[in-house]
């Protein structure tokens, strides 16, 4: 299988790695870059655990071929905190007990960030639909939705 040399800005750092052409960006990030925050829950785009931002758009990295990332700017959960300062979403997930096992949490945080980037004041329904691509089997979503609401309030300065 052909391997491609990929240069991308990953969590703010210019990063170079080699990946087989048919491999997913998710596997490349995990195996080649060593960022295991994004998880594979399904490999078919149905669970959202591998969500990352590529050029400011959220997507499931399991459905992206690694070479597609060449030249892109990628944000994973590892890059969400800013110099040791947690993102408000991370802080609200912690304070609101919005995680149980935690496997889906990285994907939820990225998807929620993507939502709040676009819509700083979403309704509960808008949050639920925006996060419908992220499966959580532990929480029943209740505390996740509340944590996103709270983070949105904080980020709006309310």
């Amino acid at each position: 299988m052909a391997r491609t040399h990929i240069t991308a800005v990953v969590n703010g750092d210019e990063t170079e790695f080699l990946a087989e052409d048919g491999t997913s960006l998710l596997n490349a990030l995990r195996d080649e870059v060593g960022l295991t925050g994004a998880k594979e829950g399904c490999g078919t785009g149905d669970c959202g655990s591998c969500s990352v931002m590529i050029d400011d758009k959220v997507t499931t990295s399991c459905l992206v071929f690694a070479p597609e990332a060449n030249g892109a700017t990628i944000l994973t959960v590892e890059g969400l905190a800013d110099s040791g300062q947690l993102h408000p979403l991370q802080q609200c997930f912690l304070e609101g007990a919005a995680l149980q096992c935690g496997i889906c949490t990285p994907g939820f945080l990225i998807a929620a960030k993507a939502l709040l980037d676009k819509n700083p004041d979403p309704t509960e329904t808008e949050i639920r639909y925006a996060l419908a691509g992220n499966l959580c089997r532990c929480t029943g979503y209740d505390k996740i939705i509340r944590a996103v609401q709270e983070a949105a309030r904080e980020m709006r300065g309310q």
Partner: peptide, 11 residues
Amino acid sequence: GLEKVTGKAQF
């Protein structure tokens, strides 16, 4: 919690 919201937790 911190490890799990920052992607550090090892599954």
